[in-house]
Nucleic acid binder design. Structure first.
Length: 499
DNA sequence: AAAAAAG
């Protein structure tokens, strides 16, 4: 399948090809023909599988090659960084035609945004606050919007955003074409969404028996009590083969503290969260994307949509609030067919949250919660005293952690790294183990291993669709979370889990 | 309950 076969205009096919984008993803194959025909769509697909172009190409094409000036497309997103990214993607796709894209978001000077609107930009990508701000000042008119998209739609229709979104909808013509996209679409949100849509079709670009969790992400979960978390994270950051890494914290303060701590330890880390000014935020994102920094410490501001190549690890310094947040966070890795590793630390007070997440999502095989021991022997192969700071120089340890999880070994994991990682057949590290720069700034390496948590027999593509015709919603996905792949698995609490 | 989103 090609974009041409999907009836995408040649100028866009060329613009994509120039960026190395040749073959459409399943969600694009499913949505593009319907979207081109003006069908309202609720599009659900796994993280990192091309939702942005799934709605981007059709809306650009429906504007025509040389559209009249003035705002005709409105794309609303939940964060400023995602706003920048989506604008860039749409700009890339439309680079060979006379269409102008403007991004409208807060924390930034009004000037440029207002000028771009006055210059006749047709496509607006924005965050709710600034959009309404400019609209109320009569600097932005939504009266001629014919295409409206909510990206991360379940988030946009959540309580924190809903009132603003309703206002935006009310300022656009009711005849508009409306599309909603996200990896997660809880049933109640789908029902709510229908108020703003005209007989939408719900597309789930995944096998009906499959959830929406990426299968090519390996999940490791550790109890965090009695643990020097910073130290253990430091060890994971020195894993052989680690590329870019995103570390999520629960609070802005924790993110600020951790970036200091890791900086002290010689890591190449930067942070993005709401306590930073917009310039700092954008500088952090740019240096992470460019690879100048290989560790990004973030609050949930970066949990959704952010697309950075070669993120090999996501670390949940604090467990996310619910299964949706977990899915979006870990979805920063394992994108566009690549593999990824997600490490989650579970604090004592949060043990129940892991149970909820584990039950709501489907990991293919159960994910055991392990103890990543903080015993001093773990540090002996690092040649540093436990708890000391300073630049760590270590043998690879990712396999140490992973094999502990696989073999169910609680406790003495320290020697595994030296002996070659019991039970791992994929490791090339025995030879490469002690070489190379260990400061955390080396370039990412490609990984070919298939996650052991993946069921290789599970189908990976396919689509189910159902129309919303105003009737009951119970014949389609009413779940608040991706569906379980296996009904047989019931979670016995892991040993040591409070029950 | 935190974070996000206007200033």
């Amino acid at each position: 399948m090609t974009f041409s076969e999907l009836n995408i205009d040649q100028d866009m096919v060329q613009a994509l090809a120039d960026k190395g984008i040749i073959e459409p993803f399943p969600i694009q194959v499913q949505t593009i023909p319907l979207a081109l025909s003006g069908q309202d769509i609720i599009g659900q697909a796994k993280t990192g599988t091309g939702k942005t172009l799934g709605f981007g190409l059709p809306i650009i094409q429906r504007l025509g090659l040389d559209p009249a000036p003035g705002v005709q497309v409105l794309v609303v997103v939940p964060t400023r960084e995602l706003c920048v990214q989506v604008s860039e993607d749409l700009e890339t796709a439309s680079s060979n035609r006379n269409t102008k894209v403007v991004s409208i978001y807060g924390g930034k000077a009004y000037e440029g945004q207002i000028e771009a609107l006055k210059a006749g930009a047709q496509i607006v990508v924005g965050t709710p606050g600034r959009l309404l701000d400019l609209a109320s000042q009569r600097l932005l008119s939504l009266a001629n919007v014919s295409e409206m998209v909510l990206d991360e739609a379940d988030k946009m229709l959540d309580l924190g955003f809903l009132a603003d979104i309703e206002k935006l909808f009310s300022q656009t013509p009711s005849t508009r074409h409306t599309m909603l996209f996200s990896a997660t679409m809880p049933g109640p949100i789908v029902a709510l969404a229908r108020r703003f849509m005209n007989r939408p079709i719900h597309i789930r670009a995944t096998d009906p028996d499959e959830g929406l969790m990426q299968a090519n992400i390996e999940h490791l979960v550790y109890r965090a009590h009695n643990m020097d978390k910073d130290e253990v994270i430091g060890r994971i950051l020195m894993a052989e083969g680690r590329g870019k890494t995103v570390i999520f914290t629960r609070t802005k303060r924790a993110a600020a503290k951790l970036v200091e701590e890791l900086g002290d330890r010689g890591f190449n880390a930067t942070a993005v969260h709401g306590d930073l000014n917009q310039e700092q935020r954008e500088r952090a994102m740019a240096s992470f994307k460019a690879g100048k920094k290989d560790i990004l410490i973030a609050t949930d501001v970066a949990a959704r949509g952010i697309d950075v190549d070669d993120v090999t690890h996501v670390i949940n310094h604090t467990i996310p609030e619910d299964e949706k947040a977990y899915l979006h966070r870990v979805g920063r890795t394992g994108r566009a067919g690549k593999t990824g590793i997600a490490v989650t630390f579970v604090d004592w007070d949060d043990m129940h949250k892991w149970t909820l997440i584990n039950n709501a999502l489907d990991f293919g095989t159960p994910v055991p919660m392990e103890t990543y021991s903080s015993s001093p022997h773990l540090y002996t192969d690092l040649n540093i005293p436990a708890g000391s700071k300073g630049r760590l120089r270590a043998s690879p340890i990712r396999e140490t952690a992973a094999s502990a999880a696989r073999t169910g070994g609680a406790g003495r994991t320290g020697g595994a790294g030296r002996t070659g990682g019991a039970g791992r057949s994929d490791s090339a590290r025995s030879g490469a183990g002690h070489s190379g720069d260990q400061t955390g700034s080396r370039p990412p390496r490609s990984r070919t291993r298939v996650s052991p948590t993946t069921n290789p027999d599970a189908p990976t593509a396919g689509t189910t669709a159902s129309t919303h015709d105003g009737g009951g919603a119970e014949h389609h996905d009413g779940n608040s979370a991706p569906r379980r792949r296996s009904r047989t698995r019931r979670h016995a609490p892991q040993a040591g889990t409070p029950s």
